[in-house]
Design a protein around this nucleic acid. Structure first.
Lengths: 100, 100
DNA sequence: GCTATTGTTCGAATAATATCGAACTATCAA
DNA sequence: TTGATAGTTCGATATTATTCGAACAATAGC
């Protein structure tokens, strides 16, 4: 498939990041990515339809939280931890420190 | 006027806090409160209608970010900094550290 | 009590989001 | 080239938010 839009670090917006993280499904995705390092979309769907997950991954991608790369037929996602740390020091760490 | 609902610290929800902070108007309110300590609703309206501001203050209040107390005919608002620090250590600090 | 000031609540319009099935695209493997 | 797999995109629907005017409530001061 084609390439995805990933905002450069300097263009990551605080409001967008907070909004993306405020959804329970997306927060759960982010938590799992933090634990497991990286994962395909399917690995994190929790039984939801593919189109719903695709939507949430897009929100995470376009807000700058997640980086998606092609890996065969699947898409591998990882947190942009260092980019987020650079943009908003301590923010993701604080979010991930909250017990599930 | 009557008393407001303020969630106890133990019931403050991460998702609700992130959501409340993801709105530009509310984030701006929070930043000003952080700078000025406390303020009335009218002092932070930026020219918006009262009913709009009242809505945003309610979201901030009910998510646990702001405490409102009656002060004559006006309402004085302050950040629940220590409560938020207890619930989500480092989170508000990280948000407020982001340049405006 | 009357009036001004502050803010809340209601109601309606508009806008944004979430959800999910169906059709589509891209890649791999036989 | 056929089939299977992984995800995206589209379109429709339902839910939720935002915005704001108008009416209401509470307090202070005269």
């Amino acid at each position: 498939m084609r390439q995805f839009r990933h905002p450069p670090t300097s263009e990551i917006q605080l409001e967008s990041v907070l909004y993306a993280l405020s959804d329970p499904v997306r927060l759960s995705i982010v938590r799992k990515l933090a634990l497991e390092g990286e994962a395909t979309c399917a690995a994190l769907d929790g039984g939801r339809p593919k189109s719903s997950m695709s939507h949430h991954f897009r929100v995470l991608r376009e807000s700058g939280i997640v980086k998606t790369r092609n890996d065969g037929t699947s898409h591998m996602n990882e947190l942009r931890r260092s980019d987020l740390e650079e943009a908003f020091p301590g923010l993701l760490t604080a979010v991930l420190a909250v017990p599930n």
